Each structure stands twice: as C-alpha cells, then as structure tokens.
Computed example of a mutant assay.
Amino acid sequence: MAKRKQARPWDAVFDQIQVRPRPRLPEYVYPAPVTDVELDELEAHLKCRVPESYRTFMKRFGPGEAADLIRLPPLGVRDEGDQNLIAETSACRGKFLNRRPEYLPPNANAAWLGRLVYFGSDFCGRTYAWDPKDVTHKRGNEYRVYCLRRMEEGDPEDRGETLADLIQGVWAEQVRGIEEDGGEKPTGIDFKPWNPVREKVKPDRDDVKRWFAFNNNAARDLAFSIRYHGATDTFPILADALEEAGCTSADLLNSCRTGDPTTDGVWVLRVLGLIFGRR
C-alpha cells in the first residue's frame, strides 16, 4: 500500500487560496508557477536554502498578490524586469550595509538587516523578509518571517515561522475588519497573479476556417457546443480537435487545456470568431 502523503503545516492555509485573476482582458499571458530549477538557481544566488513553504507556494501559485496585500514578486533568475526578489534583496541589503550609522533608522541593526532575504512587500510601505540564520523548522528549512515598516526597520515585527503564518495572519486581520464592518466573511484567501508578461498571439482567420472544416467540422461543432450550450468542460477536447486539424498555436491550445474557461475561454471563442469584441 502506498504511503499516505504527510500533511505539512502550510497545506491548510494554501488550500484556502483562491486564484482570482485581476480584472483584465483575457488575451494576456501571465507568469507561470515557478519551477524547482528556478528555485535552485535562486538558492545558488542567495547562498542559502529557500524555505519549503515559499518553495511550495511559488510552485503552486507563482508570483502575485496574496490576501489582497502581500506582493510576492518574480524570483529574478530570468529576464523578469526590475521588480524581483533578487533585485529587492540586493537593494535593501545595500541600503543598510552601505549607509552611514547616523542615517540609519532608529535602533536599526545594520548587520542583521543586511543579511535578510527580502521576498515581498505591500502597498503600505512595508517589506517582508526572512532571516536565513533564524531557523524555525529544520526539516522544512523554515526561517522566521519579519515585517519591516519603512523608516522603522529598527523595530521589526515578528510575523511567524513560515510564509503560511504571514499569509494566514494578514488574512485573519482582513476578516476581522470585514466582520466588524458588518460584511460577510470571505470564503477563501484571494490570490492575484503577477502582471502579464505578453499578449497572446492570435491565429489567422484563414487558419481558423481550415481547422473548422477539417474532419467534418469536428472542431467547429465542439466550439459551437461551448459557445451556445455552455459545455466549457469540452475545452480540452476542442484543443485536441484543433491540434488534429493542424493548429500549432501554443497560446490557443494552452488556453483551451489549462486556462480558466471564464477568462481564457472567452479569448478562445473570440479568436475563433464565435463572439464579438476585441480580437
């Protein structure tokens, strides 16, 4: 009998996360979840292990905004723009290690602040970091997580032993505020993917006509079933039919197979000419 997978401390929190794409046009491609190879490259750059809770989160959800507040940027091991973990960590470490003592925030420990890994931030001027020398769980290689307020870094706030503790704590604060205002408790923790990386490549109209005509209109009939009968569960089958008809559009096929029917599916039907709107 196969061994039952042992639950980890952060599983219960991550299972409550609901991915909710930002209000967006569905023709954009968003960052994919992070791979082990990329996380290994990050470890090599930082010269320390990344916490297992962080590794699990980024592989499952990728960069984005958790609990409507915590911004977890791309790693920075690829060409991911200026906003990334490596760039933020380098800038913050340099800010404290290279600044003259009289210009540091009150009670700031420059050596300690200069060794932290700055993995996130929010829109209130706060930065989130873990201390690679303060191990909280050896098995998962977890580090203590801190919240640092701008110009108050000398008074760090302990936010828990794992990334899940931070997310759970921020979410709990939000729930209390909503309930105090008489609102309804959210059903889960929202997660919004990071900014789009590019616009999807649309197939040519003549190609669509050819794919639709192939095999007695098999792909066309599937697309019609989705459009007019709401059979969104057949999007993966539509991808197979399109591919068999000669479609090589990665964006179109991926939108059918792994995309959200309410967002990516809209784009699919639009470029296939079954709904009107921006093509």
Results as ranks from 00 to 15, higher is better:
D251A: 02
P63W: 11
L113P: 03
A44C: 05
P106W: 10
D40T: 07
I178E: 07
S90E: 13
L269I: 04
K185L: 05
T136D: 00
I167Y: 11
D79E: 15
Y118F: 14
E173G: 02
D82G: 12
E38H: 10
A218L: 10
R126F: 01
L25F: 14
T248D: 15
W194T: 01
I189A: 09
W211F: 09
N107R: 12
K133Q: 09
P21W: 14
G169A: 02
T248G: 12
I70Q: 07
L69V: 01
G62Y: 13
C247G: 07
D233L: 13
E43P: 06
T35Y: 15
F214C: 09
T262V: 04
I70M: 11
T89N: 12
D122L: 05
A7Y: 08
D204I: 06
V50W: 12
V37P: 00
E184G: 00
S121L: 03
D15K: 12
C256A: 11
R144K: 15
S121E: 07
Y143I: 02
V208S: 10
V201L: 07
C124H: 06
E65I: 15
F191G: 01
F119A: 04
Q6L: 12
I275D: 04
L269R: 01
K202W: 00
N109C: 09
S249N: 15
T234N: 10
G265N: 04
R210H: 13
E142T: 10
T232R: 07
V29K: 00
I189E: 02
R220L: 11
T35E: 10
V29R: 03
F235S: 13
V34E: 08
R8A: 09
R149M: 11
E184H: 02
I167T: 11
N254I: 00
K209G: 03
Q18D: 05
V135E: 14
M58C: 05
F224P: 00
V117Q: 13
D204P: 01
I167R: 01
E102M: 12
N84W: 03
V271W: 01
E27L: 14
G76I: 04
W130P: 02
T89A: 07
F214A: 10
L253F: 13
S53W: 13
E65P: 01
L222D: 09
F123Q: 02
G183L: 08
E102N: 08
F123T: 05
F212Y: 14
P74K: 15
K95P: 00
E173S: 08
T35Q: 08
